[in-house]
């Protein structure tokens, strides 16, 4: 089943001054259960594409369908609720709310959804155990390493059981060991929990772990390579 479909997506920044065509007609389909890397040179439009798929930004042209919904037609407020229910985000860094503990960060979106307390607690513990941080649950982000923070971010993104997780260069600030750990974790969640992951990266070791690699060049899909599963 398709979770994401984009057709002819164009995004132009600064249309009035010096226009930058960040995306220049992107057609892309992502199915449930994929483990897909978006790659390409700096400035090729990876972040822009992920933002548009995630409903954080709107395309100037083209259609974006997420889980069968035309997200461009949604109001800002509806889009926020849509993101909360359907999309998990992992950003490059500083994902977490500094004043909340790891557990509270993971529970946060569920809190916004008004899920009952027992469910939140159970889910947060389950996820933090899954990302190997059961002994850090009550630590604040500042007490965690960069890799640990990113794992908490993955746990938070997973907590509301989204349709898919978007991760923009999730390993960019990590050393190679933490990178490998995070990738292992994502691959495992993808396999065992059937979570769809779409992540952008520059890192060859990360690219090597993807089952599908979409390469953007100048705001267009240049190559789209599907590999045999590991």
């Amino acid at each position: 089943m398709k979770v994401i479909t984009t057709k002819g997506v164009v995004k132009i920044y600064n249309p009035d001054k010096i226009p930058v065509k960040a995306l220049n007609g992107v057609d892309l389909e992502i199915s449930e259960g994929e483990f897909t890397a978006i790659v390409g040179p700096s400035g090729s439009g990876k972040t822009t594409l992920l933002n548009i798929i995630g409903g954080l930004d709107r395309p100037d042209e083209g259609d974006v369908e997420v889980g069968g919904h035309d997200i461009d037609a949604m109001s800002d407020n509806k889009l926020i609720d849509f993101r909360k229910e359907h999309i998990g985000f992992v950003f490059q860094a500083y994902n977490l709310i500094p004043v909340l503990t790891a557990r509270e960060n993971v529970e946060f979106v569920m809190l916004l959804q008004n899920r009952p307390k027992e469910e939140r607690h159970g889910r947060a513990e389950e996820l933090l155990r899954a990302v190997g941080l059961e002994d850090k649950m009550d630590k604040r982000p500042s007490e965690l390493s960069g890799g640990q923070q990113q794992r908490v971010a993955v746990a938070r993104a997973l907590a509301p059981k989204p349709d898919f997780i978007l991760a923009d260069e999730p390993t960019a600030n990590l050393d190679s060991k933490s990178t490998a750990n995070l990738l292992d974790l994502m691959a495992q969640l993808n396999k065992e929990e059937k979570v769809t992951f779409i992540f952008s990266t520059h890192d060859q070791r990360v690219i090597d772990r993807a089952r599908r690699v979409v390469t953007l060049v100048d705001g267009k899909v240049a190559t789209d390579e599907v590999r045999e599963s590991e």
Partner: peptide, 16 residues
């Protein structure tokens, strides 16, 4: 600002 951006991204309403 960055933190506000993250919060709105992950589904917090502006009024909240």
């Amino acid at each position: 600002e960055y933190e506000f951006g993250v919060l709105i991204s992950i589904g917090m309403h502006r009024w909240q």
